[in-house]
């Protein structure tokens, strides 16, 4: 019994250290956003919150159109997440459960696109957007992100194990066409996998910086990450203000994660174990 208690204490101690290490950056972000820039520079660093938070928030509001950027980001993130979930689950399900001519080649080609570094496609993709006349428009952000090879791969792996062939047959006997097999049979089973995909997709859009920076031309359409960077100056910067902006931009993501974290963790584990 004694050794059991010790084990528990040790585990909790390790967990506590882990929590402290991962929470500290957020805590420090919070501390910096409640202090002045001089306090940010101080050494040893200041570790208690100050009283400058509202002053800093006001500076952020004066410096950039934060609300607009927030709404822009939410709009783009929600649309992309929704369509990615739809297209990637559809494609992943098809690759997992249907045998059709060329399916292996197509899947291989899909995986091959994952090997190309994103930086390489910056200029070509920019030129495509230019030809389509989409520069400066949300379309340039949304359309290229509507489906992603990783997501399709992820759902395929998930669906292969999770959806039994017997279930598919049962559905067919009940008169389901292919789309209804996907919609009524596969989707409910894929839900944990979709939760994981949804969060990563949402976070990916939220944090994306280079592409929106390059294709958006009008500051009223900037996303949060670009707007945050707008506050920087070439030399001396008001770091307290930038940290406050960063905190405000990160908070919604944290709240969102707290709401869906259950599904997220369930999804991770489901993908890891074969049944």
């Amino acid at each position: 019994m004694r050794s059991e208690t010790w084990k528990k204490v040790t585990i909790h101690l390790i967990l506590l250290i882990g929590v402290a290490v991962s929470v500290f950056p957020f805590y420090w972000l919070f501390v910096m956003s409640t202090n002045t820039t001089s306090a940010v520079f101080a050494f040893p660093p200041k570790l208690v919150p100050g009283n400058q938070f509202w002053t800093n928030v006001r500076s952020v509001w004066e410096a950039v159109d934060f609300t607009q950027a927030f709404l822009n980001t939410v709009f783009v993130a929600v649309v992309i997440t929704f369509f990615r979930l739809f297209f990637e689950s559809l494609a992943g399900f098809t690759f997992a459960k249907y045998k059709f001519p060329g399916s292996k080649v197509l899947f291989f080609l899909l995986l091959a696109t994952m090997m190309i570094p994103g930086q390489l496609s910056l200029v070509p993709q920019f030129m495509i957007m230019k030809t389509l006349g989409w520069l400066g428009d949300f379309k340039a952000l949304i359309v290229p992100s509507l489906a992603n090879a990783f997501g399709i791969f992820w759902i395929r792996q998930f669906a292969q194990d999770a959806i039994h062939d017997d279930l598919m047959d049962a559905g067919r006997i009940d008169g389901c066409n292919n789309f209804r097999l996907y919609f009524n049979v596969a989707l409910p089973i894929l839900r944990p996998g979709l939760a994981f995909l949804g969060i990563t997709a949402f976070m990916g859009v939220w944090e994306d910086y280079m592409w929106p920076l390059v294709v958006l031309t009008d500051s009223s359409k900037f996303t949060l990450m670009v707007t945050l960077a707008q506050m920087k100056t070439s030399h001396t910067a008001n770091y307290a203000m930038i940290m406050t902006g960063t905190l405000l931009a990160t908070l919604p993501l944290i709240v969102f994660f707290l709401f869906v974290s259950r599904q997220f963790i369930a999804g991770l584990a489901d993908g890891a174990v074969k049944s």
């Binding site: 200029v123 030129m127 390059v214």
Partner: peptide, 13 residues
């Protein structure tokens, strides 16, 4: 600089 160079290279408006 990246944004400017991409725009110049890509021939954007």
């Amino acid at each position: 600089k990246t944004k400017l160079k991409t725009t110049l290279a890509g021939g954007g408006d």
